[in-house]
Every structure is written in structure tokens, then in C-alpha cells.
Write a protein that binds this DNA or RNA. Sequence first.
DNA 1: ATACGTGCAAAGTATTTGCAAACGG
DNA 2: CCGTTTGCAAATACTTTGCACGTAT
Lengths: 153, 153
Amino acid sequence: MSTSARPAPASTWRDHTLATLAAAGYRKGGARNAVVELLDRQTCALSAQEIDDGLREEGRAVGRASVYRILEMLTELKLVQRIDVGQGVARYERHQPDGDHHHHLVCDECGTIAPFEDPTLEQAIERVSRKLSFAVDEHDVVLHGSCKDCRPR
Amino acid sequence: MSTSARPAPASTWRDHTLATLAAAGYRKGGARNAVVELLDRQTCALSAQEIDDGLREEGRAVGRASVYRILEMLTELKLVQRIDVGQGVARYERHQPDGDHHHHLVCDECGTIAPFEDPTLEQAIERVSRKLSFAVDEHDVVLHGSCKDCRPR
DNA sequence: ATACGTGCAAAGTATTTGCAAACGG
DNA sequence: CCGTTTGCAAATACTTTGCACGTAT
């Protein structure tokens, strides 16, 4: 909002997130930064476990509890979206204030998760959201089925 | 399909379910019947815990394990739909082969869950489903927000 | 009579919480 | 230095599994 008039480069989310955290009065923290950086690089939702593992692999291990605490905080601040894809595991991904919004396809056989997007669907959701008595501020669509590999025909 | 030309009465699901179970070679079972009957009476999704409690209240208690086993079986046969609404609890409701399909509104403050339906949304989902490489056979839309009680203004 | 269905209790996972040590401001 | 952030370990919550008994066929 304050930098310039042209659209910011790719890592806006990371910056926005760190700025929001600072604005909310949180101190900087190594574990938190590591989680934010990792989420910033993802293209789809990760489970807490996967985040923990990912950080460990890159030599920046953090306590599992911290991962959960950080994800909760980020979810609270609407910086990440928590998604329940129906396998008893919560997944998390960057929450885009606008644009680049996608939903999830779940293969119930092998557990694969794939993102997809569709403007028409998005519109339909916005339309119905406005008609409801709830104040809707997030939505999530999950399509269950079988992926190509699991159902060749 | 075989009874008559006019729309069947309310408890089609119960009948369809029992018939399907029988056709699949399952024996009759008290616990299973109790769960089916209870689900048949619901208007929205219940958690395993709630089902267990409900049955206990009406004096027809069953083992918790049985509840889970039965729900798994029914889900497998596509007789119930499992829904993850994002609170670490799975919820289950009748799966309507057609018609009467609804989705869920979740109040993230008080945890209330309310159903809603919207034909346009339904259409948008069907349309996008056909365009994907997955064979989609179920879908679920969850809208998160605050209910009237939690956000008066 | 035989095998499936059920209930209990124990085991497993995912997630949360309590507390002391580490660290940023 | 002070209070937040972090990590560990224990606790909790939900769901699954093992096994013996009940029940439908």
C-alpha cells in the first residue's frame, strides 16, 4: 500500500505476513520466520507434519508444538487458511487476500491432493455468501474422487 | 425406481440404505439399524460422538467402536457423506443420490453448523468437475464466518 | 453350528498444553 | 533485563484395532 503503484513481485505474501505480525505487536521469532518462509514457497496446502518435516530436512528444525502454535496464530490473523480435506489431518496454506484463490481435489484412494481453480465457481460462492445470514469470510471447496492414476478408466 | 411413478415418501434414504446393505451381503445388525434410523431422522451432519450420545439418550446405546465401524461402512458404500468442517472432528450425514443436496456454514466463533443450498453453486461445481482429470464423485463446500449471534453487526 | 456383527478396552494419531530455557527488543 | 517465543514432554481428543462374545442365518 505504501511502496509504489505497480504490482509487487512474487513474495508479497511473505512481506505482508511479516508486516502484519509486526503490526500486531509480535516480536520476531526464528521458528516463526522459518515457517513463514516455508509456506511462502509452497504451491499447495501442507499438513503440520509436512511442515515440521520440511523444516527439519532443510536443517531448520523447530518443535512440533511451535509449528502448531504458529499455524494457529497465522490462521487467527487470516494469514493462512486452514483446510480440512477429510483425512483427519488439517492442512494449511497461504491465504490470499485476493487473487490466486484455489480449491482442492482429493483422491480418496491414494490421498493425493491437487489444486484447481475456477472463476465461475468463485463467483457462485460469492453470490450465495451475500445472501446468507452468516458473515462469510472464508470458503473452501473440496472435491472427492479418484485421480487419473487410481482410476485409469 | 420400482415402486411407482410419484415421488416416494420421506424415509426413502432409510429404505435405500437397508436394501443396499442387504444387497451387499451384510447381515442385519442391531447397532447398524440404530445408527441408520438415527441418521435418517437428522437434518444436518452429526459427529460420531453426537451419534453415540444420541443413541445412548434414547436408550439404544452402542459401542463407540461400532459407531465408527458402521459409519466407515456406510461411507464406503456412499450411503453417507463424511464432512470435515475444520474442527478436528468428522461429521456424517445421509448421502442423497440426487436432490436435497446441501452444504455447510460454520461459525468459527461458536462452532455452530448450519446447512444451506444453492442450485447455481451446485451447477458451477458440476461444470468444473467435468473439466478435471479426476473422476469426481462427491463434493463439499464449507463457508466459514460468524453467525448472526456471534457478530451482531 | 458357523461366521458375521458388536462391545469393551487398549493402541494409535493428530493436536494442545505446561513449563523452563533461549532470545529479541 | 523483561517478557515473548520456543522446545520438550506430558496430556488430551478423536479414531482405529484386537479379541471374545452375541446373534442372524
